[in-house]
Amino acid sequence: MAAHLRTRWPDHPERHLCHETIYRALYQGAKGGLSRTLTRKLRTGRPLRKKRRRSDQRMPRFVAPAVLIDRRPPVIELRERLGDWEGDLVVGARSQSAVATLVDRRTRYLRLVPLPDRHSAGQLRDALIAALSKLPQQARRSLTWDQGSEMSRHHELAPYFTDGIFFARPGSPWERGTNENTNGLIRQYLPKRTNLSLHTADDLCVIEQRLNNRPGKTLSWQTPAQAFTAALAL
């Protein structure tokens, strides 16, 4: 909107607004602002702005030291090999339910890991171990996650990856861009503010198959399933 105003009336600065002015009008409410019902029209649907902590002021969450993303082997950045995964939680209403997502950086192959009984560090560890045990060793090289407390037992998962586990910097989701983009697709099937525990393992398998059989431009119009199978055969 702010850019559109400048483009449409370039010679009338009195009609220009910066984006922060628009947000303040929405969130300020009755005190000289717009109707608070308009916040429902925002993509986030968020009624209030959340105050963000600075990343350097966040308390450490892990007993075992986390290895940051800048210490990953350079080969991971190249997307030339199978088995370098990015992971995260897709969380439901009031953070009461969640599904873990794993995406292979090279092939964009997706694994959805059900967490029917909450998503504590121990429960996530057990669920990921069960999922990882079904993958061949050549498909388990590294994992990159954010610094959520659910990964506080990451040291117990590290033996399942030949190159270990790495963590993005706090407040830097773009450092796991493949996973973030895939989570956006997953949200079409697992919407925010819903109870994700209602989705059974079979339901998640159906979603997996749909996304793994979706051709992608980055894969030269192969599907992730085709790319994953081809990479395993190398």
Rank of each mutant, 00 (worst) to 15 (best):
T21S: 15
T178W: 03
A158L: 04
W85P: 00
L128I: 03
Q147V: 12
T229R: 13
T144V: 11
T223F: 00
G32F: 00
W145S: 01
Y27E: 09
L124P: 00
L232G: 00
G87V: 10
R169N: 13
R140G: 01
D163V: 09
L124I: 09
T162N: 10
M1R: 12
D104K: 04
D56S: 13
A121C: 03
S97N: 09
W221G: 08
R210N: 10
Q226L: 07
D56W: 13
Q147D: 12
T229Y: 08
G92K: 01
N195S: 05
L132A: 12
V103R: 10
L68Y: 10
R24Y: 09
H155V: 15
A225H: 11
I207P: 01
Q57D: 11
L196Q: 04
S55W: 05
L42A: 01
D104G: 03
L232V: 04
G92D: 03
A139D: 00
V67H: 04
A139S: 01
T21Y: 09
V103E: 08
D117A: 12
R40Y: 14
L112A: 04
P114V: 02
M151T: 03
M151P: 00
T144Q: 02
K192S: 08
H19Q: 15
R111C: 15
D203S: 01
P114S: 06
R94V: 05
T200W: 08
G29H: 06
F167C: 08
D203R: 00
W85T: 01
L185S: 06
T162G: 08
L234I: 06
R53C: 14
L143Y: 09
L198K: 14
T218Y: 02
D11V: 07
D70H: 12
W9A: 10
A25Q: 11
L48K: 15
S220H: 10
R53D: 13
L219T: 06
T44Y: 02
P60H: 11
H12W: 13
E86I: 05
Q188W: 05
L124D: 00
R140I: 07
L82G: 01
T21W: 09
C18P: 12
C18I: 14
P224D: 00
G148W: 06
R176N: 08
D203I: 04
Q222T: 07
D84N: 02
H16T: 00
L204I: 04
T194Y: 09
Y160G: 08
L110F: 03
G148C: 11
D203Q: 02
I69P: 02
V91G: 11
L124F: 05
E86Q: 15
S152E: 06
S133D: 15
Q137H: 11
R193W: 12
